[in-house]
Design a protein around this nucleic acid. Sequence first.
DNA 1: ATAATAACCTGAGGGC
DNA 2: TGCCCTCAGGTTATTA
Length: 269
Amino acid sequence: MPELPEVETTVRGIRPYLAGETIENFIIRERRLRWPISTTIDNLQGARIDSVYRRGKYILMPVASGAMIWHLGMSGSMRILPISSPVEKHEHVEMQMRSGQALKFRDPRRFGSLLFTEHNPLDHKLLHKLGPEPLSDEFDGDYLYQACRGRTVSIKSLIMDSHRVVGVGNIYACEALFSAGIRPTREAGSISKKRLSKLVDIIKTTLESAIEQGGTTLQDFSQADGQPGYFKQSLKVYGVKGSCSICKGEINQITQNQRSSYFCPKCQH
DNA sequence: ATAATAACCTGAGGGC
DNA sequence: TGCCCTCAGGTTATTA
């Protein structure tokens, strides 16, 4: 159930156990993920992981011969556990390290992926057209305003389109639009630059505070019985069945692009 | 290029 | 308790 803050928290959690470490054994129990796991992954036994970083929601692990490209999909999660720890249900991949620790990838719905590229992963087909990182300076009011010019799609669709900006998932799209007072169905091209600038600021602060909260759970990342770095965010509209915390009016739920949108019809226009 | 729709899966939870 | 239905926080591929 990862949104960008969970992915960032995951990267920070696993990095100390993987960066600079050598892969002892790659165990792939289920190759049928979003795309089948290529057998070239099996050849990474003995390889040393140079670094662990993120682009959008993709987790990248370069090695000498190329790079692994991971994605958690809808239900994926990663833990660091001792090699001897019991195999859990839906634990499709276990990357055992020479250190005695293992990266364990669980993904019940199998929408996640593990790809390998011999080139710079940022040049990979799935990554090279991605929009800017939401927390970078490149993502600002001017950028979003230009991205919205002439666009008839809803603002929610636009900010969730990874080719415009990465990392804004369904929950944070709903939350940010609520805080910005913009209705999710509003046509992107019809919103003033001033209001889009506010939306940008809110997206940044919302994601930053969630990442900050995620940091507090890092201590549990390598523990068998701890939560794997995920956390509950206090949500103002997403999943709310009752009334708006601001105006006490009823929160509406609609379907947009096959996903749930929540909004307050009195506060958001 | 843009916009809308289908598709990939399993599990949780509600209603009866 | 069990069955059936709906829903789920992602993303790409395909179609118009």
